[in-house]
Design a protein around this nucleic acid. Sequence first.
DNA 1: GCACAATTCTGCACTGTGTGCAATGTTTGC
DNA 2: GCAAACATTGCACACAGTGCAGAATTGTGC
Lengths: 202, 202
Amino acid sequence: MPARSTLRDRRRQQTAREIQSAMLRLAVRDGYGAVTTEMIATEAGISPRTFFNYYPNKEAALVGKSPEIGPDITESFRQGTGPLIKALFEALDRHLRDSYLNRDTIRMIDTLLERSPELVPQFYASLQTLTAQLAELIGQRQRAIGHHDAELLADMTTHALANAIRSWAQSETMPETDIASHARIQVERIGAIISDRQNENA
Amino acid sequence: MPARSTLRDRRRQQTAREIQSAMLRLAVRDGYGAVTTEMIATEAGISPRTFFNYYPNKEAALVGKSPEIGPDITESFRQGTGPLIKALFEALDRHLRDSYLNRDTIRMIDTLLERSPELVPQFYASLQTLTAQLAELIGQRQRAIGHHDAELLADMTTHALANAIRSWAQSETMPETDIASHARIQVERIGAIISDRQNENA
DNA sequence: GCACAATTCTGCACTGTGTGCAATGTTTGC
DNA sequence: GCAAACATTGCACACAGTGCAGAATTGTGC
């Protein structure tokens, strides 16, 4: 569901971004642990109670609302037949082109994750929606791949994608359109290490 | 530090296990969300405050305290020179032989993760200690592998290991000594998928 | 424009998590 | 058996998160 464009919905999205941005600003300034939901609400100009209408917890506000993969993309992924990894990252590439990525936002998240490494696992956990969606898609396209394997692969993919997005945010020159292929290259590098082919094509 | 065997330390370990077991019993009976730290404390025969002397939060009590990889194992892993994956899972195999795994405990965890899938990401996050240790070891042994790659690989390994332990707990017949090789096989299967070699050796 | 339906925002009361601190017990080394 | 080290506990407190009900706002049909 690619967000009906009623006034209400646009406002909702706007507020969600507002809250995330307030949270990030405060966390970068005062440290994640020092930020309370009350401070965020005040900074974002809403009541403390309303914060929880937008995000189920503090963590979630950090990551923000990321859109689901659209049905056109999932459809063509499911029905494709080429190499899985190629198709997977093509789908992610298309998905990224649909999403708005804000360099400054990602940079702030990056700063936080560097300053408070204990947040990193929590951060990846917040990407669960994407991971679960990917796992399901992989399972549907490639019936021969078991459930656990699909999940592991999806997890890895999300992880690599997050790494690629972080590199992109850090770099001044890397175009947004390179993110998916960056991630893909990392995954393939891992594949090579697993198969002990580290010194090939070096 | 392989746990000095003073009375104090043995008691500490015992209490930690006691708490975990209390938590699991209650969570299986009433559902994870319905269990409060106070209930756990009562069930385990300690004061509510003491609970937090053992575990930083409810999550952690679920997973329990798992011992670090001993220095003998890490030493020989770091200095080995063969294929990384082989060495990695050999080290894990030795590590598992040092640890006590309790089938019933794992089964209860398994039940919980099935009933409350929202716990799964949190669960993997709790294995962060192991993941971080593995990432560091990989980086030290194989200098050519970048930091991000080592982390991704470590994450995958931990994930696969958790899967293998869960299979072991479910099975009546699988010997404990097969866990590491199970995990290794999963990782290698993923490696093959990445490299689009799914139909080899089938 | 105007009523009224749907939705969203907010305040309030309440349960539960997690921490700091200081008093009180218990273990240990000597 | 004594003093230092460490563990347990109670208490007070700050904050997270939820349910509910009324106020405020926005969308809709006329």
